[in-house]
Write a protein that binds this DNA or RNA. Structure first.
Lengths: 139, 139
DNA sequence: CTCTAAATTTAGAATAGTTCTAAACTATTG
DNA sequence: CAATAGTTTAGAACTATTCTAAATTTAGAG
């Protein structure tokens, strides 16, 4: 009987690389998040996914982990909705389409989109980053 | 004894113009919001302001009114923070600097800033609007 | 291996912002 | 002014998120 093993090695490495202990919960979440390409999750959506797979991770841990991953540079938070917080596995330079009705985010490559004419910020302030959200709806 | 009257006439007109009954609460809020130039408020910040002036409007009414004003096109909602909802009296084409640490919004004229290269949205979707948030911090 | 200290996870309570509800009140119309 | 439709309100309810303190797990030393 061959035990079906999740591709957990990469996740462990990745966690070690950023100085996070590879606990079961972190490894499982990292495996899910980084297995495929770019993903956009919500704490609840990720928790549901985890639960659906029969894994047991508390919602609090999902929240904690998402924040830890974000601080570690593994994830990025995307603010598009006053109601929910989204996390994006794509930490590179890019922007988003946001389909409010469905809570769906779609990446726009950073090379595609360009913002020009950002004025110098008021005295004493420096630009941290420029976020573009293209709000879309079903036609 | 001359009664100090708030410049309430304009507010009443403005409300009538968009089909909202000029109740005391709406008139007071409209007067505050539209008296000066562009303003950025939060339900709570506006409620505090109102209370500070000795006026009595429930927080629920402030929320209701902000939404009604928004639907009527008198205000615009700005999404920059997962925690609070901001409302902007400037409903024209423009963008924002956002100083997260202090919750401060600063307008960027729409003429200044330009977004180029927004790809065509996925099939069946149309662009509703493009929001740019320039996140700034104290240097 | 086993033990310990430190880190992590967890259930559930707590919090913050916002929305809902149903009763009281007010503006408009006739 | 009376009727009625719209509005306001206090407080309950709700949602997403954070906190807390106790239980568990990990890493590393022996």
């Amino acid at each position: 009987m061959v035990k079906v093993k999740r591709d957990t090695g990469r996740a462990v490495e990745r966690l070690r690389a950023v100085g996070l202990r590879p606990t079961r919960q972190r490894v499982e979440l990292a495996s899910l998040l980084f297995r495929t390409g770019d993903r956009h999750v919500t704490a609840e959506s990720l928790h549901d996914e985890v639960s659906g797979l029969g894994l047991k991770i508390s919602l609090a841990t999902v929240y904690n982990t998402l924040h830890q991953f974000t601080h570690a540079g593994l994830l990025r938070q995307v603010i598009v909705d006053a109601a929910r917080g989204y996390f994006d596995t794509n930490t590179g330079d890019h922007q988003h389409f946001f389909l409010e009705e469905e809570g769906t985010l779609i990446d726009i490559p950073g090379e595609d989109i360009q913002v020009a004419g950002v004025p110098q910020p008021p005295m004493g302030l420096t630009v941290d980053r420029v976020d573009v959200v293209v709000r879309v709806r079903r036609a």
